[in-house]
Amino acid sequence: MTREQAWNLLTEYNQEAFHLEHAQIVEKTMMYFAEKLGYGDEKDFWGVVGLLHDLDFEQYPEEHCIKSQEIMREKGVDERIIHATASHGYGLGVDIEPEHEMEKVLYAIDELTGLIGAVVIMRPSKSVQDLELKSVKKKYKSKGFAAGCSREVIERGADMLGWTLDDLIAQTIEALRTFQD
């Protein structure tokens, strides 16, 4: 599936600017990690997975990661994309466990990119370029801040990858710096 085909599918089911922006942030973050982790030849595939991970969320929030499988199968989407996107809902509505390193990265960074984005909005610079790990950690500890971003999922994702929480946050900040601002 090309990026253009993925975008067309995404915009068929998503119109809200917030959801489209989040999809693109996760797409680019996934591409960054593909390169960083030695999967550069699969960078575009990782990006498509990131772009489509929340395909069903806007229209079917109660069936998130379930309805998307049905939609993608009807459209003839590669089963690897279907498995990968559905696996980011592991333990939250589906029992499809992230297996490949790519799926674990998606699971870990989906919520985290949202939390980091919320931290950036609160900064005087409104930029990720000068964002430090300690700033994210401070907000991370405040349960009321970006309450919709599950710390449990972020931590479980770091564990799946065998990374510390600090490493996951720092690397995700680095990823966001490569394309934001």
Rank of each mutant, 00 (worst) to 15 (best):
F145G: 11
K67Y: 05
H100G: 04
F145I: 06
A23D: 02
P61G: 06
F18R: 15
S87R: 07
P98S: 13
G38Q: 07
D95K: 15
G40R: 14
Y32Q: 10
T178H: 11
K43Q: 12
E27K: 15
A147Q: 14
V77C: 01
F57Y: 15
N14W: 01
D41W: 07
G76Y: 01
P61N: 10
I154Y: 02
D110W: 01
D78A: 07
L52F: 01
E21R: 15
C65W: 12
S68F: 03
A23G: 07
E101N: 12
H53S: 02
A17F: 00
E16V: 06
S150D: 11
W7F: 09
L112Y: 02
E101T: 13
V120H: 08
I96N: 12
E152K: 15
D181R: 14
K134V: 04
I96E: 14
L9Y: 02
S142I: 12
S68L: 13
D181A: 12
E74K: 15
R123I: 04
L161I: 06
Y60K: 06
L92N: 13
S135I: 09
E97K: 15
M1T: 09
K141C: 01
E155G: 07
W7R: 15
A175Y: 09
G157N: 05
E42D: 12
C65I: 09
I81A: 01
E111F: 05
H88R: 13
L115K: 06
W7Y: 11
E4K: 15
E152I: 05
E58P: 00
D166V: 08
A158I: 02
E132S: 13
D167P: 03
V49Q: 10
Y140K: 08
A146F: 10
V136I: 04
G144H: 11
R80H: 07
